[in-house]
Simulated assay, not measured.
Amino acid sequence: MSNLHYIVREPKIKTEQTPLLILLHGYGSNEQDLFSFAEELPEEFLIVSAQAPLSMGFGGFAWYSINFDDINGKFSDIKEAKESIHKIAIFIDEIQAKYQTNPDKTFLLGFSQGAILSYSLSFFYPNKVQYVIALSGYINKELLRTEMPSNIKTEYYCSHGTVDQVLPVAWARESKPFLDNLGLKNEYSEYNFGHGVAPQNFFSVKNWLVKNL
């Protein structure tokens, strides 16, 4: 059991093979954050927004801790991150089984910390999801397999703000050459925005989702 709390938007257009869109929020947020987009997304989707397991108090949650010290500066708790990746993988299986969604149309959308884990999950669990939308995140090299699998078919949509002061755009710019080197289909775009989702970015995401339904 993943034991992750979640909220759901049922599909407004019923099909025999319902596509699944899972949302992973960023550090210090909660399952309500990205869910605010749900009503504007394609009506065919079952949309599930998961809440991270680590409580930060005051309604905030994290997928893994971000620590600070005088020697290492800012650093991520890699052990916790890997534990969350495993929980998310189990969670995807649970949701697919419970709602009988199309196993070939599973989309994983993550913002910031959620985007970092979305990338990593697609490498640790090849083809568990067919589509990854990584918003304002990057590929953390500490969250990669020792040997990358060669059978990944997942497609990626990646975007970042050029004036992001939380996660530098330079980190995000490494994602496309990394994915290109693996021969993985991907789109990368930037917006004159900070650490968030610009309106143009949202419409681009929506169009990408519709294209891949």
Rank of each mutant, 00 (worst) to 15 (best):
I90R: 13
N67P: 00
S84V: 12
K87P: 03
F91Q: 03
D77G: 04
I66L: 14
Y64N: 13
G73D: 04
G73A: 00
S65W: 04
E94Y: 01
Y64G: 09
D77H: 06
G59C: 04
I95N: 02
F58E: 14
A62H: 10
I78S: 07
K79W: 05
W63S: 07
I85V: 11
I90H: 12
E94I: 01
E94K: 03
G60F: 04
S65K: 14
M56V: 09
G60H: 07
Y64I: 06
K82G: 07
F61H: 14
D69P: 05
F61T: 05
N67R: 11
E80G: 12
F91P: 04
H86D: 15
E94M: 00
I85A: 08
A89Q: 08
E94N: 01
F58W: 12
I95Q: 03
A97L: 07
A81W: 10
F68H: 07
K87L: 15
D77N: 15
F75A: 03
F58K: 13
I92V: 11
A89V: 04
G60A: 04
F58V: 12
I66D: 03
E94T: 03
F75W: 13
F91W: 06
K82C: 06
E83W: 10
I88D: 05
N72Y: 02
D69T: 02
W63Q: 09
H86G: 06
I71P: 00
I90N: 13
A89R: 09
D70N: 11
I88C: 07
E80D: 09
F68D: 05
D77R: 10
I95K: 04
K87H: 12
I90F: 06
G59A: 03
E80S: 08
F58P: 02
G59K: 05
K98N: 08
K79H: 14
I78D: 11
W63G: 08
A81P: 07
A62T: 10
W63H: 09
I88E: 04
